[in-house]
Design a protein around this nucleic acid. Structure first.
Lengths: 213, 213
DNA sequence: CCGTAAGCACACAGAACGGTGTACATAACA
DNA sequence: TGTTATGTACACCGTTCTGTGTGCTTACGG
């Protein structure tokens, strides 16, 4: 699509072989899963010869690990760096992004690869810990009594919503957000208790914008 | 192990070929995952010829679906049928069983198979809905204001703990149980508010009895 | 004693997988 | 102009996967 310099024989080296591979990974690994996406298909989608792919990555494992490392900026930073929100609002905003994220690739990778020692699994672990830490930081900023506990709890809610969305094929994040609101109100004493009228539709009857297929 | 009638050539037809196949499935699918367990290995573990396996099941897909249907009695009924507990205690007891369950095969199957139309995925969906319904029933029995909401919330906590346990390789159910206690106390007005000293170790520093390797 | 159902052993087909080897083409730079 | 990265095209290797085909063996009921 993007016009790249290319030779008459179909050569496309707009200095983006690696980028195209990773870009195709993002799409295919999430649409089809990691195991069900072969290197042949991936290279075809990236418009890159298989030989080139294996000159950029020593193997599929390394490619998968590298693929996982490309989500931070959009998801993690995108929420926590919003200075226009109060810490408390930032904590709740973490439950509003996932419509963009159909599946949570970290959980998917950990389950599909099934080897805790796999580089991608290790990164998924590190990432989830980092998210919990960021949540804890924000919770501390918001004045929570036990920020670490609240951060871990909110992280669990996010993962629960992701997993449940996947299994039920229905958006579970509103439910998680409702729980989060309760936990935050309970954990931040100075915060105004607000009216407990935040009970939105929690029974999973959402119109499933989850993406898969 | 169990003494079966067997002929001199190693024949074992104690009327349990199908049982042995499903039994081996339970072990291997959970230890190694579904995709990483080949039919050859599975048949070898079940001490069943491959030919026999394919006479009992039309294919691996059917076997996987049937394998998933063998968890209800132990997990679901085991908790909800305990009449020695109050409804409220039963809700909390749902967070104590998972040490037995290393991974939650339903989530695993949904992620691994990656096809919402797969029979096993459909059953996983049904099962998760059934669990939420059972939780809702118990919540209603316990006098919760909005039983459906509480049931869905507790179900999300269980799934979150399962997913997070998997990714972090550390038991996340204590955290989920702590959240559950808060939610239950908030949702059941008549229930004594109790001292809020239920904050056990929620930062995932548990010694990982999760099972996987 | 004989028929039938159930099972076994084993080879094999066909496909997909990850990964490589080889020969050729182009772009950029000297 | 020539060299060196970088990439392509495509065949290919070995492995693993689901699934079959075939022939033989056993248990059991009449």
């Amino acid at each position: 699509m993007t016009e790249l310099e290319k030779g008459p024989t179909g050569r496309r080296r707009g200095r983006g072989a690696r980028e195209r591979i990773l870009s195709a990974s993002q799409q295919l690994f999430r649409e089809q899963g990691i195991n069900r996406t072969g290197m042949d298909q991936l290279c075809a989608a990236a418009q890159v010869s298989k030989r080139t792919a294996y000159q950029h990555f020593t193997g599929k494992d390394e490619l998968v690990a590298e693929y996982l490392r490309r989500f931070d900026p959009s998801v993690l930073s995108g929420v926590f760096d919003r200075t226009d929100l109060t810490p408390r609002e930032r904590l709740l905003a973490a439950f509003d992004i996932p419509p963009t994220t159909p599946l949570c690739p970290y959980i998917g990778a950990a389950v599909e690869l099934h080897d805790p020692q796999h580089p991608a699994s290790q990164y998924a672990r590190d990432y989830k810990k980092a998210v919990a830490a960021r949540l804890a930081d924000t919770a501390r900023e918001a004045g929570a009594a036990d920020p670490e506990q609240l951060g871990e709890q909110l992280a669990l809610l996010i993962d629960g919503a992701a997993a449940r969305t996947r299994v039920l094929n229905a958006d579970a994040f509103p439910t998680a957000a409702a729980i989060a609101a309760v936990l935050i109100d309970n954990a931040i004493p100075t915060s105004s208790p607000r009216q407990p009228s935040d009970d939105r539709g929690t029974t999973g009857s959402a119109p499933v914008p989850v993406g898969g297929q």
